[in-house]
Design a protein around this nucleic acid. Sequence first.
DNA 1: TGGCGCCGTCGAAGCGCTTCGACGATGAGC
DNA 2: GCTCATCGTCGAAGCGCTTCGACGGCGCCA
Lengths: 338, 338
Amino acid sequence: MATINDVARAAGVSPSTVSYVLSGRRPISAGTRERVQAAIAELGFHPHAGARALASSKTNVLALVVPLRTDVNVPVIMQFATAVVTASRVHNHDVLLLTKDEGTAGLERVAHSTMVDALIVMDVERDDVRLTALRTLKQPSVLIGLPEDPAGIACVDLDFEAAAAEALRHLAWHGHRRVALVGPSPAVYKRGTSYAERFLTGFTIASATLGLETMTHPCEPDREGVRACLADIDAQLPGVTALVVHNEEALRMVLEELQTAGRRVPADISVVAICPRDVALNMPLPLTSVDIPAHDVGGLAVETAMRLLDGRSIELVRLLPPTLVERKSSAPPATAAD
Amino acid sequence: MATINDVARAAGVSPSTVSYVLSGRRPISAGTRERVQAAIAELGFHPHAGARALASSKTNVLALVVPLRTDVNVPVIMQFATAVVTASRVHNHDVLLLTKDEGTAGLERVAHSTMVDALIVMDVERDDVRLTALRTLKQPSVLIGLPEDPAGIACVDLDFEAAAAEALRHLAWHGHRRVALVGPSPAVYKRGTSYAERFLTGFTIASATLGLETMTHPCEPDREGVRACLADIDAQLPGVTALVVHNEEALRMVLEELQTAGRRVPADISVVAICPRDVALNMPLPLTSVDIPAHDVGGLAVETAMRLLDGRSIELVRLLPPTLVERKSSAPPATAAD
DNA sequence: TGGCGCCGTCGAAGCGCTTCGACGATGAGC
DNA sequence: GCTCATCGTCGAAGCGCTTCGACGGCGCCA
């Protein structure tokens, strides 16, 4: 492997000049620059990442902490992850992949050993134990999610409260009065997963504001769980005319169960999903949905990390406004006249 | 951040002694070792990864290249990825996440700049363009998959040919004579994706060996694709009594379509799936399946990388034998008497 | 009791890069 | 024509660690 010294020798300049050509931190004459670049190309020189990190205390690596539990929706996680990687590359950074199960120790390990410049943390819980650890690190961190007390840590996410409100507003506008929320699995709530709670809150508040009769119900994403959930909803909220489904894995089964029960969507019952765009589009019926813009959120997380790294100002909490797209699964409720 | 010098001073020894305590490369007396360890703990010392990489030319980082296309099965990819990360941690390594779309350039970038010690590459194609690049790197690489000509590169995977044979053998043993393969989407074949082709090959060979009447059909994983696929199968292989499904995303829909058509599984038609265990178990009916042991394969990939790194011998191509587990979706075909 | 080998430790070099201060050359200002 | 910035480049220090050769002290054997 060629070193910066080899390049310098080949170009007839000093190593520092090569470095300045590379970093652009000092003016270099056009002629010199070209000779250096030619030498770099010819020798196939790539600066040694470790040496660079040592000298500059920058690694150009971001840590990304992903959950590996399978009760969260895997494809969505993957969408976030690839969005983060893609955005990182745009900013000339790479991504070190950590799993949530290493917990606090993993964060400290990579931070203390200076493997990364910043950390992006997914699957944040209400009182996430990792927060205090993150606050003591010298590297900045960005959460994808919003804990109860972010205090000093940057957070980005979809505004799930607003998303719930948006879904209800849409249904209310169509004339629905009785709406049930099919939520994530009980385990997700039990963990205090941030987005689930915020959606629930938004749902409850909007329900009151709009004067709707609503109920909420977690849902295990298997056939039995879905059946039980729908049965409970029918029992507790008879005459329900619309469902808000915030559980992608259950989504398809919910639709199937409705069909099996002979309830047509949207003629007999409307469905609004909270999920990524492509999921909504790939259902048997294109669903009216509020997007989970994983790509935007991931990109924003990286962007925020970059701003933090070069000392630009940021908004500490950034919640993206939801977008509801009306497709084929929502309509006014059937009237007695129908 | 404390440095090794701080630790040395605190423990009253030289920096090299601290280093030897850390690495165990030279004998250190118990007393000294304890003092050093105490100092390390007290100061919260973590060696600087860059400095270490520079001095030792080892990064303790593995590159993992994942596909981000969505026509491959995302949850399976995720299983491989988490298996690799988990296994890496056991060997005291971290994982740098690359996406396949950076192609050859990405591999060369991380290798030439000495960011990683070895590379693990997923989603390998028949004539993968990345192979020649990999061969020129000074770092070893391990493929998850098996290209046409691996020549010198370590490969690990499930033995998909044997998996196909296993599925057919099981069905033949039950007395089935007409069996159709519901394969991955056409795009997967078109790319020359290694596992899809190997499965197809194994299927065809085993079919001949066992003297079965079979056919194969790719399947787009959406409602329409599944319907079309099943219709084609019925048209081209009338009286088919069993299906081998090598397409997880279509799996659920296949079952649904069969049910809709009033064909009971396994009474009217048997189904053998090729998929991870948990997928087979989470279907409405527990499926007879050949496991895709993502966890084992990922672990083996890491293990192989480690052996390569410390010069132990390896088998260049390692294909894990398939395991078929009989569950509720396979049975002897209905006879005329039924 | 003297010599030899081994154990445990030290010191220094060096990994490849960045960065800071310095310095010659050039051009502008008076 | 002389001073003073400015531009472009250089040299050297230093980032924090590993590793190699060296060396003192000890136990062992003769």
